[in-house]
């Protein structure tokens, strides 16, 4: 196992350190155990006020310019809430007819409940971020709505990559639909981070550094305090090369 790879044991160790720090910072991370196994995952829920960038909604849907830009995204979501069982494709049609006109309006924001899970992938020897989001009424966000909640700067980068980076997939431990940031590029962006840390003999928590890169894409910010003040001695131990 190379120093740049994360094995399961190291993953658990990194998670333990995050949990200790999270407790002191009241950041809300907890460890969920999977029944009948040693495996588990880090979990956190957060309320977020999400600003929807409406221009890109239009770009994504590829619909023609609509002359009646009245309805905000917010009200569009409420409207969809009543049509909870509608599949995406039908929703799109409905949106385009009435509520979807929102695409032309100015940005709006609404409060959403996000649930983040950090799992270990043995295939990619890396952590993976799973998440799902609900409106306060309890309706699950669609993949399209999740994309629209991503900051436009990130969104352009991600959508121009060959593989759509956010997809809906089965949570490998719970068997339920979650959104996931695809892990296949993780090693590419972690390598320079780890290399620099190694060269400068700096401590680094793989999972924490990784999270600080991928988390903000989906609104999960990692407070700087994780890396500065807490337990420098404890975090040192995570830097031991294998």
């Amino acid at each position: 196992m190379s120093w740049f790879e994360l094995n399961e044991e190291k993953f658990h160790h990194c998670c333990q350190l995050i949990l200790q720090q999270s407790e002191q910072l009241s950041d809300g991370w907890i460890w969920e155990v999977v029944q009948g196994s040693k495996e588990g995952y880090l979990r956190k829920t957060a309320l977020r006020s999400v600003t929807i960038d409406s221009k890109s909604v239009q770009k994504q849907k590829g619909s023609s310019l609509d002359p009646e830009p009245h309805t905000s995204y917010h009200s569009s979501v409420e409207q969809q809430g009543q049509e909870d069982e509608q599949p995406d494709c039908i929703k799109d049609d409905i949106d385009d007819e009435d509520a979807g006109i929102c695409m032309m309006t100015a940005n709006s924001s609404q409060v959403l409940q996000f649930e983040y899970h950090i799992l270990y992938s043995c295939s990619y020897s890396s952590p993976v971020l799973y998440f799902r989001a609900f409106t306060l009424e309890g309706r699950s966000l669609t993949l399209e709505e999740v994309w629209n909640s991503v900051h436009p700067n990130f969104r352009l980068c991600l959508q121009n990559s060959p593989l759509d980076t956010i997809t809906q997939q089965e949570h490998p431990l719970l068997g339920q639909p979650f959104f996931v940031l695809h892990p296949c590029r993780t090693k590419d962006f972690m390598r320079p981070v780890l290399q620099a840390a190694q060269d400068q003999h700096r401590p680094v928590n793989y999972v924490l550094s990784w999270l600080s890169v991928v988390g903000p894409v989906v609104g999960l910010d990692v407070p700087l305090k994780y890396s500065t003040q807490l337990h420098p001695a404890a975090s040192l131990s995570s830097t031991e090369p294998d």
């Binding site: 069982e85 599949p87 995406d88 494709c89 699950s140 669609t142 993949l143 997939q169 089965e170 639909p177």
Partner: peptide
């Protein structure tokens, strides 16, 4: 109808 959101992935 009644797509089981909590069990199935969407396949548009």
């Amino acid at each position: 109808k009644n797509f089981p959101e909590h069990d199935l992935l969407h396949c548009p």
